[in-house]
Computed example of a mutant assay.
Amino acid sequence: MRRILVVGITGAGKSTMARTLSSRFAVPYHEMDALHFAGPGWAVNDEFVTQVARIASSPAWIFDSYGYPEVRDLLWEHADTVVWLDYPRRVIMPRVLRRSLRRTLLRERIFGGNRETLTDWFRRDHPAWWAWSQHGVRRADIQRRVRDPRFAPLQVIRFGTPEEAADWLRSQ
């Protein structure tokens, strides 16, 4: 496991899992949202695809992503391992709601110095709305990719609950 892609719906814990794996396996972790957003106003990094392609061609990395269609196939083609946090909505939604509420109330700076605001909660691309509406779509796409021969040989480690993931991490 040297090129690890951690996938799942918004709020599944991809970044947390990726940081843990990075520490455990001494493999560099790259936070996809931090690479994608370049600055205030959710400005997009013009070099995003180039940066991801450069990292993906290196011998070892961990990304926490499923999104960003412009680099999705690239990451799946270069990965040797996919860690899939395949959690149900009843697990995801409380997590994403707590995280967004904390970020909004505490005005936490995130990617590119941006912040989640109360107004953002009413947008279709807010993490809470996105996690709810995209849960089934994302799950189906990941299932399709796992079976796609273009991405073989690919080790897939799938967890249906956070407890399964925690047990696996303890065994590593």
Results as ranks from 00 to 15, higher is better:
V82T: 01
V44H: 01
L169M: 11
E77P: 09
R2W: 03
G41H: 12
A38N: 03
E47P: 05
D64E: 01
R158I: 04
A79R: 02
L74Y: 08
I92A: 08
R158V: 02
A53R: 15
T161C: 01
G136M: 08
H135C: 08
V27K: 02
V137S: 08
S58M: 11
S58Q: 13
T10M: 13
K14W: 15
T104C: 02
V27D: 10
A128R: 09
L75D: 03
G11C: 09
R102P: 03
R90L: 04
E47N: 06
F159Y: 10
V82I: 14
V91T: 15
A166S: 10
R89L: 13
E70S: 15
I55W: 00
M17P: 00
L85I: 06
I157L: 13
R103T: 03
I4K: 07
V156H: 01
F122P: 01
Q134K: 06
G67L: 13
D73E: 14
E116V: 07
L21Q: 08
S100Y: 10
L101H: 13
A26E: 14
Q143E: 13
D125K: 04
T16H: 08
W42S: 00
V27F: 07
I142V: 09
R2V: 10
M17L: 14
R24H: 02
H135R: 08
A128M: 07
E31K: 09
G113N: 03
A140S: 08
R89P: 05
E47M: 12
G160C: 11
G8Q: 01
S65Q: 05
W84Q: 11
T50H: 08
I4T: 04
D167F: 07
R150S: 14
R144A: 12
R72V: 00
A38F: 03
D120K: 07
S15V: 14
A43P: 06
L75H: 00
E77R: 14
P162K: 00
D120L: 14
G136F: 12
S65H: 15
E47S: 12
S133A: 08
R109T: 12
P69C: 11
W61D: 00
P153I: 09
T161W: 02
R95S: 04
L75C: 03
L5Y: 03
L75V: 04
N114C: 13
I157V: 15
G112I: 03
E116A: 06
E70Y: 02
A56N: 15
F122T: 10
F37E: 01
S58A: 09
L75W: 05
V52Q: 00
A166K: 13
R2K: 13
S171C: 10
I4N: 04
A166W: 10
Y66H: 13
P69Q: 10
S58E: 12
E31H: 15
Y29G: 11
R102G: 01
V91K: 05
G39Y: 07
E163S: 11
F151S: 09
S57F: 07
R158G: 04
R109L: 15
Q155A: 13
R109I: 05
N45W: 12
A34L: 10
Q155Y: 08
W42T: 11
D141A: 04
M32P: 09
P94I: 14
D73G: 13
H30K: 07
T161R: 02
T117W: 05
E164Q: 14
Q172D: 01
